[in-house]
Amino acid sequence: MDVNLARTFLMVTETGSFIHAARKMNLTQSTVSARIKGLEDQLGKPLFARSKAGAELTAAGEQFQKHALALVRIWQRAQLEVGISDQHSDHLAVGAPSMFWDALLLDWFASLRADTPQIALSASTGLSTALMQRLLEGTLDLAVLYRPRQPRGLMIEHLFDEEIVLVTSVLTPQRRHASDYLFIDWGPDFQQDHAAAFPERANPAISLDLGSMALDYMLANPCSGYFPARLVRPHIAAGRLRLTKRARKFTYPVYAVYPEARNEEAYEPILDSLRQFVTKHT
């Protein structure tokens, strides 16, 4: 299948309009319509319900959307790897939620780059479900995730246990107000455990779905909240944050996920490097 057909389909899906898709892609509307018609002919199903209001995905279109994304990603990866083949012997694509890049995986990337300069590296962030899908597609080589499910074809290996602790930027012990509490979203498991442990904090004054970026807010404002211990450890040592004693802690296992069918000779040094790095830095 021509990857341009998949790209055009995704643009119509994004904009909800053949006209807007044509403008964004710098094409004529008739070209966009012809591409979608050709795609529908190949698949034998209508992908969009057309109306004066625009274009909405049909049930078949919703099913095809994930495959179109996979086609485009695989093509982009092929272009990247062919393009770098004269400078690098291999390419490693790693995905993880944003919280794992700060104070961990970016530092591992630097170490891996120093040890194996012949390998090109790329990093992605996203939700666990999307990263797992990309592993199955073959557009990611490795992911680091909390409690992933294990679909056929993927290996899951425990790396370390993430401890999430309560810290405060109020450096002298004093009575805290509910308005000082900062809720940071560390994923569905934490949301569920936090709600069970602190029902009185069901509606916090400040809630941030920003992961590790919320640390900047805490360092600039007097408040308290839960953070992974590895993120706040340097700030506690420097006296910028204080660990709240006797507060409940939450612990979640972290796993490396990678294809079951893989080149052992190429993968094992990379996995060993990751294992050694997290052992030393967590």
Score class of each variant (00 low, 15 high):
42 Q>H: 08
41 D>V: 12
47 L>V: 01
47 L>E: 01
21 A>F: 08
27 L>S: 08
36 I>C: 02
38 G>E: 14
48 F>R: 01
47 L>C: 03
42 Q>W: 07
38 G>I: 13
40 E>C: 08
28 T>N: 05
24 K>A: 14
47 L>A: 03
22 A>H: 03
42 Q>Y: 12
26 N>R: 15
47 L>D: 03
29 Q>E: 13
44 G>C: 02
39 L>K: 04
42 Q>L: 14
19 I>N: 09
38 G>W: 10
30 S>C: 04
30 S>D: 11
46 P>D: 00
27 L>D: 00
19 I>S: 13
21 A>S: 13
24 K>M: 15
29 Q>I: 07
30 S>H: 08
28 T>Q: 08
30 S>T: 05
32 V>H: 01
40 E>T: 02
37 K>P: 05
44 G>V: 02
36 I>T: 03
31 T>R: 01
37 K>L: 11
48 F>Y: 09
31 T>M: 03
25 M>L: 14
20 H>I: 07
41 D>E: 15
26 N>V: 13
29 Q>L: 09
32 V>L: 09
20 H>Y: 14
19 I>F: 14
43 L>E: 04
35 R>T: 09
46 P>V: 00
23 R>A: 11
29 Q>K: 11
45 K>W: 08
45 K>Y: 04
48 F>L: 04
32 V>G: 00
34 A>R: 14
43 L>G: 05
37 K>A: 11
40 E>W: 10
19 I>Y: 13
42 Q>A: 11
37 K>D: 11
21 A>R: 00
44 G>D: 09
26 N>L: 15
44 G>M: 01
30 S>K: 06
22 A>R: 03
48 F>D: 00
40 E>G: 05
37 K>F: 10
39 L>C: 03
34 A>Q: 15
22 A>V: 06
36 I>E: 00
29 Q>G: 08
23 R>T: 08
21 A>W: 06
48 F>S: 00
31 T>H: 06
30 S>N: 10
24 K>W: 12
37 K>G: 06
36 I>L: 09
23 R>Y: 07
29 Q>W: 00
30 S>Y: 02
48 F>A: 00
44 G>Q: 07
45 K>L: 07
26 N>F: 13
25 M>G: 11
19 I>H: 11
41 D>P: 04
35 R>G: 01
23 R>E: 12
39 L>W: 05
31 T>L: 03
29 Q>S: 07
20 H>L: 14
47 L>Y: 07
42 Q>G: 08
48 F>H: 02
35 R>V: 04
18 F>N: 00
37 K>E: 13
47 L>P: 04
20 H>F: 12
27 L>N: 07
21 A>V: 12
26 N>D: 14
48 F>E: 02
18 F>Y: 15
26 N>C: 14
20 H>P: 05
39 L>E: 03
36 I>K: 01
41 D>F: 11
45 K>V: 10
47 L>H: 02
33 S>L: 10
18 F>T: 07
41 D>M: 13
28 T>H: 08
42 Q>S: 13
44 G>A: 06
